[in-house]
Amino acid sequence: MDTSKPFWIMRDHIKCTGCRRCEIACSLEHEGKIWPEASRIRIFMLFPGLEVAHLCAQCESPACVEICPVEALSIDLDLKCIKVNYEKCIACGKCIEACPGHIPTIHPTKNHIVICNLCDGNPVCVEACQETNFNCLYIVPRESSSQYGLFAQTPEEVSKNLAISLFGEKGKDLI
């Protein structure tokens, strides 16, 4: 896949195994250590079997950028991902509330937000997920579409849907 042109990380939650190899890869890449809570992609498991890969959906018109009071967030024109200016960010958390999926996270020890930046074009989470053939995450070319933003979902929302898809009636009140 050509990652020099804008692309999108597809997330096929039903295939997520919960191996957390994406969290391991992401935190090694961006923090130099294995640190699930500092990973830009986080795997939620509100109920076992309902693993949700939670990462930025790269909305067309991102609410997070708009709300930021100190203009710490911007859209990367080449990659169409969100760039965080760590110097400017005051960790107020307004972007978390504005994001329909509450996806940005405040770094567990530092005073700023973290959002997936597509590893500047070579997302290591996708690489980790592809290596095993679990294929929850994969790359697709980015087209002009409002669909992407639909995937800015909270872990609850995704889990509720997944529960029904996997378990039928039984899944109705799991979350």
Partner: peptide
Amino acid sequence: KRYWADFGCPTGCMKLSTPKIGKYIGAL
């Protein structure tokens, strides 16, 4: 679910199963 894994595992030997027919629907 055809691959289900624990932290850091590339194997994913676990699966999730639930009967689709009969009186045991809902077993997990």
